[in-house]
């Protein structure tokens, strides 16, 4: 569980987040939605402990933030940024880097670490790519390799910044199913998403943001009824019941 209390945060200039209080519970997928520049990524970095708030408090697993040593924090939270360089590594080496927080100098992974990395690669389905260079992978394979690294990091909290952007629909669904599997394993999964249908389908809780503060937090069904989407995105979520009992949503613009 990650909790934010009266958090105000930003980089150089004015604050990007204003007095935000919320929590990301274990065993739930929370999707952060909102227009570009509303502070979604900043919120994620604050929750990951990578950025310190100017005021307010962040607690990760009950511990107040600045008291963590970097490696202990890395044993608590895995975070995948939106963009990153593609290093000259193969998939297995990348996934083994997920064990870095647990290794003492000279950071050489042992048999247990290799086993954990192997398990992470199998559960994500990249074990067949273990010896492939990252630069030869497709976008979807690369994203899965990074998710395997985050799994190998073996943390109770997993934070992903736009994990499905630039992926084809097949890989988008696969990434979301992996998130659901992490949720079912009891992790707190937090995603920044731009894709409303994906968010409504897979997330347990939606956090809608606008100019640095959350304007709605709750289940997809509640958000669809609330009217908050109309204010922020100028679309309305129309529930479409399917014969198998599930409800999906269709997003149509409001006049």
């Amino acid at each position: 569980m990650i909790e934010l209390e009266n958090v105000t945060a930003g980089y150089g200039g004015g604050p990007v987040l204003h007095d935000v209080s919320l929590s990301f519970p274990d065993g739930e997928i929370t999707a952060i939605l909102g227009p570009n520049g509303c502070g979604k990524s900043t919120l994620l970095k604050i929750a990951a402990g990578l950025l310190y708030p100017r005021s307010g408090q962040v607690r990760i697993g009950g511990t107040v933030l600045p008291t963590f040593k970097p490696k202990l924090l890395a044993q608590q939270v895995a975070y995948l940024p939106q963009s990153r360089p593609v290093p000259d590594l193969d998939v297995e080496q990348l996934v083994l880097h997920g064990r870095f927080p647990y290794l003492k100098y000279p950071h050489r992974p042992g048999p247990t670490d290799r086993e954990i990395a192997g398990r992470a690669m199998r559960s994500v389905g990249v074990d067949a790519l273990a010896s492939r260079l990252l630069s030869t992978l497709s976008g979807g394979e690369l994203q899965k390799a990074y998710i395997a690294m985050a799994l190998a990091q073996d943390t109770p909290h997993v934070l992903l910044d736009e994990p499905t952007t630039y992926l084809d629909i097949d890989h988008q669904l696969e990434v979301m199913r992996l998130c659901a599997a992490m949720r079912d394993a009891g992790k707190a999964v937090v995603l920044v998403l731009h894709d409303l249908p994906l968010a409504f389908r897979f997330a347990d809780r939606l956090l809608l943001m606008r100019s640095g503060a959350p304007v709605f937090s709750g289940s997809p069904a509640k958000l669809a009824r609330s009217g908050a989407l109309e204010d922020v995105f100028h679309v309305r979520a129309h529930p479409v019941p399917f014969p198998d009992g599930t409800t999906h949503y269709l997003f149509l613009e409001t006049q």
Binding site: L80, R84, P85, P87, F100
Partner: peptide, 21 residues
């Protein structure tokens, strides 16, 4: 510094989230 350098090659944010200063 080699092990630290390998992690830094993953990018600043990833390296930081893996616990590297």
């Amino acid at each position: 510094l080699r092990p630290a350098m390998d992690v830094l090659a993953l990018g600043d944010e990833t390296a930081q989230s893996l616990g590297l200063r």
